[in-house]
């Protein structure tokens, strides 16, 4: 496990930590460093918090679409780089849909979204065995209003890290 506690990164991390809401269903307790005041927090670039908040753990989709946007694509490329730098982690890509749509269709749509992210990660060289997918359809919204402002946040694929077998 690397320890790269640079002051610059620390400053960026603190700012982001103050304004970013980590995912409701994403764990925050990965195999981060156990020593040092900042280990495992956002300023530790090997930490899950850093992945979530600096790299970006999620991409958003247009209505009924599973094609990555340009912005989403950049996020997934950054995720791929991070995963290549941090081979001790595996990831589950969770696909989600907004509440507009029938339950089973949305399950399949969420799977399409998760798969789009996984395919790009693998194309970037992340070992296929490290990345699995799961769809929650419309079962796990993070925003609860019935308006596009919430729907846009719910149409997402979230890359959730876990400690891999190679710890």
């Amino acid at each position: 496990m690397r320890h790269m506690t640079k002051m610059a990164l620390l400053a960026v991390g603190l700012v982001l930590a103050a304004c970013t809401n980590s995912g409701l269903y994403s764990g925050n307790n990965g195999p981060g460093s156990q020593s040092g005041a900042t280990a495992g927090s956002v300023d530790d670039p090997t930490s899950i918090a850093h992945f979530q908040q600096v790299v970006g753990d999620r991409v958003l989709f247009a209505v009924d679409q599973s094609t990555l946007s340009d912005e989403g694509r950049l996020t997934v490329l950054a995720q791929a780089n991070w995963l290549l730098d941090n081979p001790e982690y595996t990831a589950v890509v969770e696909g989600h849909a907004d509440e507009q749509g029938t339950r089973e269709y949305n399950l399949a749509l969420g799977a399409r979204r998760a798969s789009a992210v996984r395919q790009l990660l693998v194309a970037q060289g992340v070992a296929a065995g490290r990345i699995s997918t799961v769809s929650y359809g419309k079962e796990r919204p993070i925003e609860v209003c019935s308006a596009e402002s919430c729907y846009a946040q719910n149409r997402r694929a979230v890359t959730v890290l876990a400690a891999g077998a190679t710890g």
Binding site: L107, A108, A111, R112, S115, A116, Q119, T133
Partner: peptide, 8 residues
């Protein structure tokens, strides 16, 4: 339904 690689 069975989904594999994003296809159902």
């Amino acid at each position: 339904s069975l989904e594999k690689g994003g296809n159902t």
